[in-house]
């Protein structure tokens, strides 16, 4: 009897070690990642409904929200949508159109990013659009600025109301690997200023950097392409990634390169369940 407490202690220590060992050997699943991720925002913003996070920083910034709502009454991205519709309808030199590549278009934004098993990579909408163009003998569009944003705006508008639903297929381990790489990117400190994406958007959302409020990571992908007052025009998600990396004084990666596509895969997965509402307008 004298030894019982000691034995119990030993037993629980062994159990704890076993549990730790198991936890260490197994990566959390994407489902678990998402649960923990969402809990972070629930805990930090208990009064904000989950669906609200699709509105980015304006879900948590009542003052900024007022001017945002005023801007949305005469959306600065409207012209881009009109130009994008023209692009969608206009035939290529060979007489075909985007519709020949995307039979279910134009409302297809919610189908991206997705794992492309054949090409063994994350397929994003801008990349798919350019692959279409090239297959039809057209030159690819630039990935950050310019007319790619027109067609993306039109497609985003036509996809409004669809729900973010990124799938990580289990029949191809490379898909999970791409997700894990994107996740690692998001939590890795980089640049002379030593920030990870997460340092601002998971650790400190709602706090102010100078007079700007840091947006929550949850919902960050729903509204692209985005018209930014700072840019004075509309830009892609990868342009935004580039800007963030530069701000922390890291060398940005190539738009639509593997790093940013994997990042988009992870980040969009984290927003699964949120309604698409692009194009958006932001400061």
């Amino acid at each position: 009897m004298k030894n019982l407490p000691g034995k119990l202690l030993l037993l629980s220590v062994v159990a704890a070690i076993a549990a730790t060992a198991q936890a260490a050997s197994e990566q959390p699943t994407p489902e678990r990642d998402k649960e923990v991720f969402e809990n972070r925002f629930k805990e930090r913003f208990p009064d904000v409904a989950r669906e609200e996070f699709a509105n980015g920083v304006y879900a948590i910034d009542p003052i900024g929200r007022e001017s945002w709502e005023a801007i949305e009454e005469f959306p600065p991205y409207e012209l881009f949508i009109d130009d994008g519709k023209e692009m969608w309808d206009a035939p290529f030199a060979n007489g075909k159109t985007y519709k020949d590549c995307f039979a279910d278009g134009p409302g297809i934004a919610h189908k991206y990013p997705h794992w492309d098993k054949e090409q063994g990579m994350v397929m994003t909408l801008p990349l798919a659009l350019n692959q279409c163009r090239e297959s039809q003998g057209e030159k690819p569009l630039k990935y950050k600025k310019g007319s790619i944003n027109n067609i993306l705006s039109y497609i985003a508008m036509e996809s409004r109301g669809e729900v973010t639903n990124v799938v990580i297929p289990e029949d191809d381990p490379r898909a999970l690997d791409a997700y894990e790489k994107g996740k690692k990117f998001y939590y890795t400190r980089r640049g002379q200023l030593n920030f990870a994406c997460a340092a601002c958007h998971v650790q400190n959302p709602g706090m102010k950097i100078r007079s700007d409020m840091l947006s929550p990571a949850l919902g960050q992908t729903t509204h692209f392409p985005v018209y930014r007052s700072k840019w004075g025009t509309i830009g892609t998600l990868h342009r935004r990634f580039t800007g963030c990396n530069k701000q922390v004084r890291a060398k940005p990666f190539k738009a639509q390169g593997e790093e940013y596509r994997n990042l988009e895969y992870f980040l969009t997965y984290m927003s699964n369940g949120l309604t698409l509402n692009g194009p958006g307008a932001r400061k």
Binding site: M207, I209, R210, S211, D212
Partner: peptide, 16 residues
Amino acid sequence: CLACHVIEGGEAAGNI
């Protein structure tokens, strides 16, 4: 420093 810290005499300070 003002990006994240309030300092007396500094404008538009953050609060991280």
